[in-house]
Write a protein that binds this DNA or RNA. Structure first.
Length: 578
RNA sequence: GUACCCGUAGCUCAACCGGAUAGAGUAUUGGCCUCCGACGCCAAAGGUUGCGAGUUCGAACCUCGCCGGGUACGCCA
């Protein structure tokens, strides 16, 4: 089906063609002046300059063609040349009735689906997930769902950090403490994590230890069997632990590859660079110098002077793999924006070496979670906060407002726990997704358990209220029917619902889940107003009753779908303690 | 030092290829539960979009200069 906006754009495109106007300008958007119109077209203003023609005159000519359209209530030219379009109620309700029957809620799949590889998560061996990993997982998962929903073929890869110096540090530390690797099989994630912390501390203050760690790293990478065996075990345990974390966040990964998997390809990349004459040896390291455009671009170190592969090489080799093995049309990295220079370099090298021709490489850089001091968030003891702890803290806050198990019929302990979890996660995720990806935020625990205002639970609450109405209707055997637009609040709700597809497309275009977060919040808000002024089940006019019931149901479906795209659950009921 | 990002209501943030009267949340003040779930709704108040020029019919958005903040800059990943 086609949504209101698409239908209008088609009408305009035809008119622009007839008038010999550039159809690039033949598009509408929701009006900035709801008092004047439902949609506006600024095309005349955009064209005036190149056509050397007064914008109002162009707008008038479009108006002539548009005003007799049976779907349009009125058109006017206002201000310098805005085309204000008001739609017939029938046109809106007809489109909404189509939407109510469409399983995709009016969202058409893209014509040519792309193979998109998404790289997010980026956990490390021996490190539990902390708040720094939260954003990558939450934003990445949301974008993954958005791209899938639009019909793309998405493959997500967690891209495990399993191959750098930290590996050598841990192995070295185990040797130091145990003498050999005989106890490795007994270590769980907490043990490994503790070992890493000790290793890190030791290497920081003692250059000799650091050197030894580097040595072991390169031996590991060169295939030392003993090291490999121990490393494999460490990796396994870490993957298990991290999987639990990602399950909790409901982040889905198709692939659990890591840096180590790119290792065999690294040498190939080095060879290609050499053959193309693009690499050179400098201070014992093999590097590629990048063209200095309008800003300084540091060279990329492929092979370090000690013979080890640099981490940038790993990422470059991974691009080659994703092109060769997965046939990626696009690769999206959801990684802290402080790494943007790194990705610029890596992308440039990939292009110079033609490793993935025609593949779009995109770094979606997100801002950091900061403490009250504006610096990246740390706990009181100077460490980073565990993701698990964060979730527990949020759950405890939510728990305070929930009834105890057994107080509400049908809600025993498992049901209450599930509800607490879903509400807490909604609070955390919405907080993370509501503002632009690029801007960071100040960490405040209160924000992660807030119910009121622009929050996840507020939207869940709107869904729960609609569910409640739908249950009552079903109980009384009332079915919904044709949507008819009657009151003003119905009209604005309907127009907002119709804007769903456009919202998803825009969010995908600029990789910005906050566009959906903003939309879903507005929709919930508009519904709440409607709910307040338009009685549904107590409406005496039966036609109006069933219409509003369908409108409510459709709202609920769009809310739920939007929440899904943000990775947020919508519980059937919300409960509250007295 | 060089490059990039940011500066919008007291606070946290929006603003859809440059558009009309710059919007939300929060905090403050007032109103609304005999009525489908008040985690709600309605309303008031809150602004020289850091400063100064320029381009444009039109600038929070584009250009330049200043001020203030952040981040990153070859052998950690």
């Amino acid at each position: 089906m086609r949504t209101l906006e698409k239908k209008l754009n088609e009408k305009l495109t035809e008119i622009f063609e007839n008038l010999n106007l550039d159809t690039d300008a033949a598009y509408v958007k929701r009006s900035d002046r709801p008092d004047l119109s439902d949609f506006q077209c600024n095309g005349a203003l955009a064209l005036a300059k190149t056509m050397k023609c007064p914008p109002r005159q162009i707008a008038e000519s479009i108006l002539q063609k548009l005003q007799n359209d049976p779907d349009i209530e009125s058109v006017s030219v206002d201000g310098p040349g805005f085309l204000n379009i008001k739609l017939k109620n029938d046109f809106i309700s007809k489109t909404l009735n189509e939407m109510a029957c469409d399983e995709n809620l009016g969202c058409e799949k893209v014509e040519s689906p792309k193979k998109i590889v998404m790289d997010f998560g980026g956990p490390n061996v021996a490190k539990a997930l902390h708040v720094g990993h939260l954003r990558s997982a939450v934003i990445g998962e949301s974008l993954r769902r958005i791209m899938c929903f639009l019909g793309h073929n998405v493959i997500s890869d967690v891209h495990f950090g399993d191959w750098g110096t930290p590996m050598g540090m841990i192995l070295s530390q185990i040797l130091e403490e145990d003498g050999d690797f005989s106890k490795v099989d007994t270590y769980n994630i907490d043990d490994i994590s503790a070992i890493y912390k000790r290793a890190n501390a030791r290497c920081k203050e003692d250059e000799k230890s650091a050197e030894k760690a580097r040595l072991i790293t390169s031996e590991l990478q060169n295939g030392n069997a003993e090291y490999q065996k121990a490393w494999k075990r460490l990796r396994e345990v870490s993957v298990e632990a991290v999987k639990e974390n990602y399950d909790e966040l409901s982040a889905h990964f198709d692939l659990w590859l890591g840096e180590s998997d790119a290792h065999p390809v690294c040498q190939q990349v080095v060879d290609i660079a050499q053959k193309e004459g693009l690499s050179e040896v400098d201070d014992g390291a093999t590097i590629i110098r990048l063209p200095q455009a309008n800003k300084p671009m540091p060279p990329v170190i492929l092979v370090k002077s000690d013979g080890g592969f640099g981490y940038q090489l790993t990422d470059i080799a991974t691009i080659k793999m994703r092109y060769d093995d997965l046939k990626a049309d696009q690769i999206i990295y959801v990684v802290d924006k402080r790494q943007s220079l790194h990705f610029e370099q890596v992308f440039q090298v990939a292009e110079m070496l033609k490793l993935a021709p025609n593949t779009i490489l995109k770094h979606v850089g997100f801002g950091t979670v900061n403490g009250a001091d504006g610096k990246p968030f740390k706990t009181r003891d100077g460490g980073v906060m565990n993701l698990k702890d964060l979730i527990s803290l949020s759950k405890e806050k939510v728990r305070l407002s929930m009834p105890k198990p057994g107080e509400v019929e049908g809600y025993g302990e498992p049901e209450i726990e599930k509800l607490i979890f879903e509400v807490a996660m909604a609070a955390i995720k919405f907080q993370d997704l509501k503002s632009n990806v690029g801007s960071g935020y100040i960490f405040d625990l209160e924000d992660f358990a807030k119910f009121e205002g622009k929050t996840g639970p507020y939207i869940q609450y709107a869904v729960a209220r609609i569910n409640s109405i739908l249950r009552k209707a079903a109980l009384n055997g009332i079915e919904d029917g044709e949507i008819i637009i009657h009151a003003d609040d119905e009209r604005s709700l309907a127009l907002k619902i119709a804007d769903f597809e456009n919202t998803v497309i825009r969010a995908a275009e600029i990789y910005e889940p906050s566009i959906i977060a903003d939309y879903v919040y507005n929709l919930a808000q508009i519904f709440s107003s409607f709910y307040n002024t338009c009685p549904i089940l107590s409406e005496p006019d039966h036609a109006l009753l069933v219409s509003r019931l369908r409108l409510a149901r459709l709202t609920r479906d769009v809310l739920k779908c939007s929440l899904y795209l943000l990775g947020i659950e919508a519980p059937e009921k919300m409960l509250k303690s007295n």
